[in-house]
Design a protein around this nucleic acid. Structure first.
Lengths: 215, 215
DNA sequence: CCTTATTTAAAACGACCGTTTAATTAAGGT
DNA sequence: ACCTTAATTAAACGGTCGTTTTAAATAAGG
């Protein structure tokens, strides 16, 4: 028989699913506890508050993703002369796939959670990420700079956030967009295919030549 | 003396400000009517519902932006042999600036509203836009296809939405990002400069060569 | 077996939401 | 002046939210 999940785990599993589908603020504790088939009060008993539950959900993915990303960046830094933008971006793929060990659909869940986290609680997640994994983010940025020595750091800063926006937007509205795409082009697009389509777009945008400015 | 605004206009002005700052669902009618210094019930009296108020706010900008965009696209279509992706994208700049006639900070307001509209009520705004201005959107898409004959339409569909995500994300979190950028790079970045930085990024991403796929 | 601590269950709390009602005031036409 | 229509006001309604409280069930230990 399948292993019986403890109440905390049932809550986490249900919360991840509903948060990723409808966002944090649009998901009520009653929806979560109903989906998990546990009592409403058990969320506050086990996690203290809804906010703490959100952080617990996010931390579970970050604690897997970020160390995996650090390892990929470390491997890339071994021969730092010949790194391309695509190489650096590709470093996020394996950590994404590693999220399957958290949950079979972990990659999709995590990306959607990220999207909602950024669009809803804006600064909170960034602060959380930077205080816990700021070093890894810094390394990533340094490698991107190294791969694009002819683009000034300030421009790269903005282009990385443009890329983040493209990814998060595509994921949070991926279901609606995939439906539209299916209606317009007949064939269906898988969620993973969306990520694969994103990489060349982002790589080209980051490495684009800077327009001449009269100064 | 300044012209006295009617109740409807006071509601619209307050709603635009609060919607663009906190999103649609996070802004209550009580906040709006308090900011506008009108009675709570007047929203439902003049607009019928909160949903109708949201549509009225969006329609006010779309009715200025979309015809202006149509005019720009029409001008571009006069010599359709030599259109570049940058040319097509540049068509959105003048209509953006035209939004100053709606409100001095109209361009920023509209972009933020767009961002929240897409991330919150997802399908609703798209349906509204397509039924009213579907022809203009279609022309825009056709010109993008024309400028990129070697990229398949499905890929272009996704890349346009990636671009939309990059733009909307940059705008909704532009204030926080500009503060971070100022702290990291010393100099400040203006909101308009953000849009200018976006264009080459998006243009390069849209026109990027498609990776080879084994089929 | 009884006592104690832990976990679950159900109900209620206070707050805020969008909306509606009913009463009052202002405005416009004849 | 009057009457009719429009606009504004204050109050309340039904509903959902996160959280807390209260009581019951369960588990553990001597």
């Amino acid at each position: 028989m399948a292993k019986a999940l403890r109440t905390q785990d049932k809550i986490i599993v249900a919360a991840e699913k509903l948060f990723s589908e409808h966002g944090f603020e649009q998901t009520s504790l009653r929806q979560i506890t109903s989906e998990a088939e546990v009592n409403l009060a058990s969320v506050n008993y086990h996690f203290g508050s809804k906010k703490a539950l959100i952080q617990a959900v996010m931390a579970r993915y970050q604690s897997v993703f970020m160390p995996a990303l650090a390892e990929q960046l470390y491997q890339l830094q071994k021969n730092p002369e010949q790194v391309s933008t695509e190489d650096v971006l590709a470093c996020v793929m394996q950590p994404m796939i590693a999220l399957r060990q958290v949950r079979v659909d972990g990659p999709v869940i995590y990306l959607r959670l990220l999207g909602y986290a950024y669009s809803e609680i804006q600064g909170h997640l960034r602060k959380f990420t930077m205080t816990n994994y700021g070093e890894i983010v810094h390394e990533f940025f340094q490698l991107i700079q190294q791969a694009n020595p002819n683009v000034c750091p300030k421009t790269l800063f903005w282009r990385l956030h443009f890329s983040l926006g493209a990814m998060l937007f595509a994921q949070t509205s991926s279901q609606a967009l995939r439906e539209i795409a299916a209606a317009d082009f007949g064939e269906e697009t898988q969620a993973e295919e969306t990520l694969l389509k994103l990489l060349p777009f982002v790589a080209a945008g980051i490495s684009a030549a800077e327009p001449d400015v009269e100064s």
